[in-house]
Design a binder for these strands. Structure first.
Lengths: 340, 340
DNA sequence: CTGAAAGCGCTTACAG
DNA sequence: CTGAAAGCGCTTACAG
């Protein structure tokens, strides 16, 4: 591999000039610049990021930490962030906190600390105090996507309102017997879906003066299969069942719809279902949902990081809304209750 | 941040000894070793990977290149690889070839070349000759997961046999009118599902002396929604329809099952469906499939890389099968055809 | 077993 | 605008 010296020699300039010409930092005559680019091209020169990072303190590498990548939301956030970063010549290094505790510890104590990252994006993570402290000690920009990190710049959707909106939709159709399917405590922590979604649900019912039936407050593991089981039980209860359900994720809503169908119920006539997410499959299931565009969230997190790194002009203040925009998508999984 | 010098000073030894004690390379008295570890711990020292890499030429960082991360197979490969890597103190840097051509070019011409990676894992990628040449010029270990890269160590499942097996299953149930749903050419290239799956299908039919109906050779975009459309059309054809279908992915098989149900057909009695993948949702759909364990494939790729890097003992020759093991999973989406 | 020193390939004040 | 030189924080022959 040719080094910067080879380029300098071939271009007939100093190493310093090559560095300046290639990086764009500092003044270089256009003659020198051309000679350098020409020489670099001829040699197939690519600079060593390790050396560059060591000398400059900038790595052009962003760390992303998430609890899993194989769930819909995370995979899409990751996809959006990678593309946005690669486009800028940045790398994305991926860390996963799932699995054993010692792996998670390794991530926070070692991997993230190794001075190889310019910034870190956490995704729906709830960090322990030492973990957060650790991260902040590095003095690198930190942006959170979702999650609950005090004093960290966070991009998030308005979970409370999303839930309230979905619930109001059902109420406005005439439903009064409405169930809610959220995450189990375990998952609420890992995926850090704050209680906001449940709160929004209860708030909307409260506003409509409908009493919450505690039996109809369910939770599952955010998988389609887990939701299927729960909703099957719910709908099989001979002592009466709800006419509608709000799910904290689309993947769970799919399970709910499948469970209802397998019991011979018609969705939406016998049972209405609302999801939250905007999963591609929603179309097929006819799922009414609130879309949250995780791909765009991943991109937004990258742009925010770039602003913090001074690589990009900050978004004008007025343009930065408190919450990431979401969108109500009406399809065919909701209708007035049978008796209405 | 404290540096190696601080540790050396505090431990009362030289920088060289600290390096040796911490890395485990070279001889160090146990007294020195203890002093160094003690000092490092007190200072909260974490070594700079950039400096370490520059000096040693080893980055403890593996690149993974895939066409997308938001499809089931890829997300799971990624998850398996990250965990396996992080466990060894390695980082995973993710590259995505989807999107515009210039992004793909950037990945191959710049990102991968920057000397920051010890090795590269490609996932179901078909590289152009220059791309492959580029990658090989770096002289770093290269392992492929699936895909068609000549002269590259590849971990792959036996696509031909998988398809043949699924088809034989249907034939043995008595089906003779069997359709196949593969990928469109565009996706066959990106996801590099070789024609092997179609070949296996045709081979099995041929063995059973069944003629392939060209009208029943379909392809879609590997999504559930795409498959749904295709299969809906297929099954709506008044001039007769197949009694069974082999799908090149489980996600497509789900779409096929949904399409059949929406047309009022009973799966499996009116229409049998077989998938390929082992997607978690297969259980819910009762999908008969051939499971290929992408999470384990990701882990296997990492282990292979570690062997090539000399970090791990090579698997004894006899233990390394030509193909990654797969598993036939019989569920309830297949049954003898109605008339049988 | 240990240390002084060269060197990895860049960047960036500094002086011109 | 340009170059000589110091320095980024490590690793590793080399000599002891």
């Amino acid at each position: 591999m040719s080094s910067i010296k080879d380029v300098a020699q071939r271009a007939g300039v100093s190493v310093a000039t090559v560095s300046r010409a290639l990086s764009g930092n500092g003044k270089v005559s256009s003659a020198s610049r051309d000679a350098v680019h020409q020489a670099a091209k001829e040699l197939g020169y690519v600079l060593s990021y390790n050396a560059s990072s060591l000398a400059s303190g900038r790595s052009r590498n962003i760390g992303m930490v998430m609890p899993t990548v194989s769930r819909w939301y995370y995979a899409n956030v990751l996809q959006g962030a990678t593309q946005e970063l690669n486009e800028r010549g940045y790398d994305l290094t991926l860390y996963n906190t799932s699995g054993e505790q010692r792996h998670r510890d390794a991530v926070f104590q070692d991997l993230l600390m190794r001075q190889r990252l310019d910034a870190v994006i956490t995704v729906t993570l709830k960090l322990t105090a030492p973990e957060l402290h650790q991260l902040q000690a590095v003095k690198k920009p930190l942006v959170a996507l979702g999650g609950l990190l005090p004093q960290v710049q966070t991009i998030r959707v308005d979970d409370f309102n999303i839930s309230a909106l979905g619930t109001e939709h059902l109420i406005s159709l005439g439903h009064r017997d409405i169930a809610f399917l959220g995450g189990t405590d375990e998952f609420n922590i890992d995926f850090c879906l704050p209680s906001a979604r449940l709160d929004g649900f209860e708030y909307a019912l409260d506003q409509a003066e409908i009493r919450v039936n505690p039996q109809w407050l369910l939770n599952a593991d955010f998988t389609t299969a887990g939701a299927y089981q729960k909703v099957r039980s719910l709908l099989s209860n001979p002592r009466g069942r709800p006419t509608a359900l709000l799910c904290a994720s689309d993947e769970m809503a799919f399970g709910a719809i499948m469970a209802a169908r397998d019991l011979g119920l018609n969705v939406p006539n016998d049972f209405s279902v609302v999801g939250i997410d905007g999963h591609e499959l929603g179309d097929l299931f006819g799922l009414t949902t609130i879309a949250q565009h995780p791909h765009a969230q991943g991109e937004a997190a990258v742009r925010r990081i770039m602003e913090l790194l001074g690589e990009e002009d900050p978004t004008p203040d007025g343009a930065a809304p408190e919450f990431f925009p979401t969108e109500f998508v009406l399809r065919t999984s909701t209708a007035p209750p049978a008796g209405a």
